[in-house]
Design a protein around this nucleic acid. Sequence first.
RNA 1: AGGACCAUAGCUCAGUUGGUUAGAGCGCUACCUUGACAUGGUAGAGGUCGCCAGUUCGAAUCUGGCUGGUCCUACCA
Length: 919
Amino acid sequence: MDKTFSPADIETRWYEEWEAKNYFAPGAGEESYCIPIPPPNVTGTLHMGHGFQQAIMDALIRYNRMKGRSTLWQVGTDHAGIATQMLVERQLEAKGVSRHDLGRDQFIDKVWEWKEESGGSITQQLRRLGASVDWSRERFTMDPELSEAVKEVFVRLYDEGLIYRGQRLVNWDPKIHTAISDLEVVQEEEAGSLWHLRYPIAGSEETVTVATTRPETMLGDTAVAVNPADERYAHLIGKTILLPLTNREIPIIADDYVDAEFGSGCVKITPAHDFNDYAMGERHQLPVINILTADAHLNDDVPEPFRGMDRYEGRQAVVEAMDALGLLEKVEDHRLKVPRGDRSGVVIEPWLTLQWYVDAKKLAGPAIEAVESGAIEFVPKQWENTYFAWMRDIQDWCISRQLWWGHRIPAWYDTEGNVYVGKDEAAIRSKHGLPDKFALTQDDDVLDTWFSSALWTFSTLGWPEETEELAKFHPASVLVTGFDIIFFWVARMIMMSLHLKREVPFKQVYVHGLVRDGEGQKMSKSKGNVLDPIDLIDGIDLETLVNKRTSSMMQPQQAAKIEKATRKQFPDGIPGYGTDALRYTFYSLASTGRDIKFDLGRMEGFRNFCNKLWNAARYVLMNTEGFDPAAPSQRSEADEWILSRLQTKMTETASSIEQYRFDHAAQTLYDFVWNEYCDWYLELSKPVLWDDTSPNELRQGTLRTLLEVLETILRLMHPLMPFITEEIWQNVAPRLGISGDTIMLAQWPEADHKLINNEAEAEMEWLKSVIVAVRTIRSESNIPPAEELALILGNTVAADTARVARHTQALAKLAKVASITIAESGEEQPPTLSALAGTIEVMVPIAGVIDVDKELARLAKELDRLTAERGRLAGKLSNDNFVARAPADVVDKERAKLADIETSISSVTGQKSKMEELR
RNA sequence: AGGACCAUAGCUCAGUUGGUUAGAGCGCUACCUUGACAUGGUAGAGGUCGCCAGUUCGAAUCUGGCUGGUCCUACCA
């Protein structure tokens, strides 16, 4: 094994072997365990959020697989209707071809071509993360089987009256020319204006003023509304307005919706272009006048001069026309929430169209109940509130999209516009007895991608067929996801599964935080602060990174800024840290918060940790060459101590993983490996192994323990760091006579409570504290590390003497001590430097010149600390209330502490007065 | 507008049902190329747990209020 750990050499090699040998497929096992992957968008590339999420799922999967469960990690991608269609259209545009030139069927062929060529990049990237997904079961939402499931669901829900077609206002994306759901609209506050327009009242000189952020919509106004309680306008209710520019007369109506305090207290009502106005229009039976085309130009229902104008040209033209009439009162700056399509980025228009809807309210009831009853459990639990809040106020779900790429809606129309829903045309004809010559045309629209994703947990397992996999792996054990798609996906899966399968889709939902950059900013391409997980694994030089972050930027100005920031943050690029270090960093950050600030410094620390583990393994392997597992052996106190500690760590690790506290699991193992196994146990093994006079059985016991503890550590860490653990395990396991092709399928280590040894732990704590005390003296008095010391121990009891005898070797080696003397109580000592190990006084005779004042200052500080502590404890214990009310064991603990402090104070005081004599 | 979450060392974060001397990593200081590892070792420094009240023998932890920050949902023209 090399002196430093090089991840690049081993990762690809092991992944290929695991995949080739099909270790990822579910094995035998009574219990089953299943995680459905949140299917990444087929056009997507791996980002930090994916990296984090896959790391968590892989840890759970590997842990459960090692526990002997039949474990399925269902993998696949979704077809991302809008994103994919846009991407392929853009490629065609580059060649000067539009999708309309090609026609629907040919265009879809092109999309499939693209998918075959480039659609797999994210799945390749998943492999780099070590994700042990079952590739043999990979699914795509547009696969024939999954499409069949989609049709089945649509037909069933339609037949049950849960899917219907209706004309109403939708969120219309004028760039992509499709409806989108409420969830796909992002509302951001932007700067705008509030125009105050005067509307003349019919048969009067009077005008009313209305305020609007969208003056062009006045061309579609069909009323003006005031609050019924507003006395200022009470006399106008029932009168009419002569709507300027249009020659239309519209009523003044009263409605509670109007806020008398806002603006002028008068609102123009445009039912065709505003959701609230639409609702009011329904209440008052107002006409609905649509004034926009599909690409948001003014249509022919507006006065001639405005026809054909883009909505923003129209806005300006209307304002100018009103101003010319003297009807523009004023214009104010105004901040408002502007709705934009999350894919196109353009401003969404509420637009009247015919669309398909799912009656979500009926499906929501059981879905709420499933979480209330605990059949589905969110972790952390607080997310249930978010879920409930949304579900209890759920709106019908618009599922039709005016796209070509996706599942085409299985509905057909005859020439009279009657609707027939069925799996295909033949089925419809036979069901309704329609002859072949009776013309039927299929609906042009496709379904929302989330409609097929909502079926993911069971459609991937073969539903509607009752397959073995479905019986075994549904409901899934847990869904691992970010809180940002609780509504999009989680809620819809729950509704669909409960309705169609009559069971929950998964038993738990683990909701993790979102990965942000070191400053807590969301990582986004436009901010130029994205990190590619693959670059963190392999490393990337500065120029490539700058190029990557600034290429295909919308604004070149932004690019310069990003370049500067990138050069400043990564002057030398990013070194490759390897997958294991990246994953460990993710785990260490996976606490309960909702933001995960990714810190490169921590990642470097975990790279170092990999190296530490690697070198500890090298040490063990170097010393255990030719080790005979069958040879007689005897364990030392140190051996028993490390084994005892190990048992505790096994229990802690497993319980942390089961509670989704990967940060705790990572911390536990890091601490054990570095601060106990490496810092102490490996060091303690040296005196045994390097001393030729050590009894052979003791030496054998040490070698065995070195190997056994290491081998167990590797299995404990494997779910978190799959590659390095496999590589080392392949070398270590055979030394113990353990056979097995891969650590992946080795058994998860279970703690043996018989190996918990409190005496050994106490004894090693004692030894460590004495060694640390000597080291402290050495360090604080600048005694060279190599100088051997004569050690005197004061304030000891008989047990200490026995312990000293047992650990002479270790003390000699680890504290560089040449001799050890136990001081009799009351015995006069030469001047010494001292430190406390518990209540034991650890002393080293002063050799040569020392800085007496410095030593006195140190002792004084120590004494201050002890005295303050004594004061605190004495105060507490003299409080009758405390002694009377606090539990007895707490009081006893405080008393014992006080007694120890008293002892320490007297030894430090003694040391101090001796030191003063030297002055 | 309603709701959620967060505030602990210079930085990134842990801290179970109230009882520790409030912890870790990085960074910092001093010393050290000792036969696994300088991606290392040893020893340190560093915190009034955002602020104010309250409950309690006892509060980083529980309650209320305030300040600062993040996010979600809804939306007023």
